[in-house]
Design a protein around this nucleic acid. Sequence first.
RNA 1: GGAGAGGUGGCCGAGUGGUCGAAGGCGCAGCACUGGAAAUGCUGUAUAGGGGCAACUCUAUCGAGGGUUCGAAUCCCUCCCUCUCCGCCA
Length: 441
Amino acid sequence: MKECHTMLDPKLLRTDLETVVSQLARKGVTFDCDHYLQLEAERKRLQVESESLANQRKEGSKQIGQLMQSGNTAEAEVIKRTMTQLGADMAAAEAAFATTSEALEEMLLHLPNLPHASVPDGSGEEQNVVVSTVGTAPQFGFDVRDHVALGELHRGIDFERASRLSGSRFAVLQDGFARLHRALAHYMLDLHTSAHGYHETTVPYLVDATVLQGTGQLPKFKEDLFRIPESDGGGRERYLIPTAEVPLTNLFRDSIVDAHTLPVQLVAHTPCFRAEAGSYGRDVRGMFRQHQFDKVELVWITHPEASWDALEQLRQHAEAVLHGLGLHYRVLNLCGGDLGFSAAKTYDLEVWLPGQQQFREISSCSNCTDFQARRMQARMREGQGKPELVHTLNGSGVAIGRCLIAVVENYQQADGSIVIPEVLVPYMGTERLIPSGVGAA
RNA sequence: GGAGAGGUGGCCGAGUGGUCGAAGGCGCAGCACUGGAAAUGCUGUAUAGGGGCAACUCUAUCGAGGGUUCGAAUCCCUCCCUCUCCGCCA
């Protein structure tokens, strides 16, 4: 029978429905048990029925073959006639089974991953728990400018011309700001590859629907994605990636890797595309929330027993970026209600933005346990053992556009110039950005 | 874009309607042989799902989907992918 791609372990659902229901509730999801149980009972009945009919047909066909070979065609004809009816019954049973399986799968594909025990209870971001706060907010003896004002002053960010090209939520960077953007990406990639052991990877920015289903963006979050219809690109529907997590993690779809090769750590710098449906009016000022932004993404593929340790390392790697830049930030342990669809646990890194006088998200590090692996059929094998689902993790290391905002706002001076953090100086070729019109240094 | 070739198990590779989950080889594992090893011999060696307390058993899978047939790796249709040559192109 056709394999069923669920998100949660179907065996857990069958054997411990109560746990599933109570854990889903922590994520704010209500599970329709009655409907599930009814579909599941029907699935079982229809599967047994259609498989038994298939078996009868197989036996019958085998008999016919034997009779034909011994020249007993008359008797073969008799059986053939009964087989015709059997075949019809089987087709009907299989069709009913397929319908029920699809309904079941549709229901289960919309269920999110279950939260880990260390995830705090809560329904929204107010209940996220601050794990640590690093550094202190810089004190300014003048009125701080936000990145929009700084961008204007430096002629480094041009929202107006960007919107003329593409509408709202796009930006054009130039000169020092463009260079800073590139420097940040370069710095992050170098840090992760040389100090943290990641393999630098480049990936396609356009992917199939199945790939997005693997990491959990589909079917539930279609409205967040930019879609290229099949009529446009080579007769195949594709989506712009909302994060490099999608292609990176899916590199392991439908494969069984040797346990010795784990963990695999990948890093990629890519643009990310998000429709931002449902965020109208939110963060409209500036380049904090864009339809297109660059990000350096970290992905781990681990042994199922190693993922919780890996999450802590992943978080440290993301933190190292901010720490290296000397930015003030804090780490949150997201509560159940604020967890993403695929995540069992997530740490958010929030950086201090003087322009907004608040902490804002700049990285999100999640352990997706076997949730994505099950959808992707990404497995590993230990010795001669059975294949087992791997665990997958991802984290921003970090969002480049937001990081640029943080750097310019935190390192601004009274005269509007921007001191370049030491780690970026080699990439920038200067220690300070001077606004045009203020005079050269 | 034009022309051609091809997609079979971890790998190579047979198989054009019947008992084929699929010969043979390689690789791998166990056993035998050996002082130990090589060589050799024997045995075993896919994945997924279902039923069953279990022993076990059933179903599906030869790129994907549909069709013909009592029965499809094998015949027909559609699609996808890979390779070679030509054209175009960063």
